[in-house]
Design a protein around this nucleic acid. Sequence first.
DNA 1: GCATCAATCAACCATGTGGATGAATGATAA
DNA 2: TTATCATTCATCCACATGGTTGATTGATGC
Lengths: 124, 124
Amino acid sequence: MLFIRMVERKNDRIAEDRLSEILKAASDPTRRQILTLLAQHGPMRVTDIHRQFEISLNAISKHIKVLERGGLVVRRTEWREHMIEVQMDPLRLVDDWFAGLRSIWALRLEALDVLITDKGENDD
Amino acid sequence: MLFIRMVERKNDRIAEDRLSEILKAASDPTRRQILTLLAQHGPMRVTDIHRQFEISLNAISKHIKVLERGGLVVRRTEWREHMIEVQMDPLRLVDDWFAGLRSIWALRLEALDVLITDKGENDD
DNA sequence: GCATCAATCAACCATGTGGATGAATGATAA
DNA sequence: TTATCATTCATCCACATGGTTGATTGATGC
């Protein structure tokens, strides 16, 4: 049957790590707020983002770095100002992993259903 | 316009927390492996899950508790054995949040496009 | 009763995380 | 040059996390 595992090798170790980074980045409420803010307002400077929160500028800077590592945000450093822009693409990796999990799950139920039906036909 | 924010109140503080729990639970590679395993094999005992990993039974037990807190797994304690079952429903919360973010983003681009078009019409 | 099995609890350890503050870098503006 | 602004770097702190080992709880089977 050559499951989804077909492509799964050392290559996917990286994808796994990427997924972890993305999910971890998205798992913090403050970081999700930052993403929402950026989606609404478009590219913003670190300071402008900071203005919307109670916490220190440094904390914001750190959060942005985490988001950056997850690829959920890109930074265009224009001279002294860093423009931060939200990046939707990585979310697809999560979508895909969810889809994969769901299909594995559905496949099992399907197989189970066939088994039961077969048994019913043979046993009756 | 009464954005998506319509329903956003103290009620959504809980939803936010739920989302954080789910994403944090999913952000660990071992926990994702456990989910995949459960999706493939159906409900399993803690010990059986443990058999598939190198780490200690206790570590597995802890991971399961995290998954449980995120609702990604449910536990049916049948006498001394705890049957662990994967639960797909919470993933929808993540899907929905992604969808929301994407739509906010798309809406902004759309509005921006209208602005540019208007400007073009008036300025030319 | 006693050994065994399934699972958790308790403690501990190293490391990571979210926050703060203060100093440093680097460019702009006076 | 000096002051100011945007941002990061360096520390520090409290607490969470992923892992370990050892003890504990409860039910099973002899």
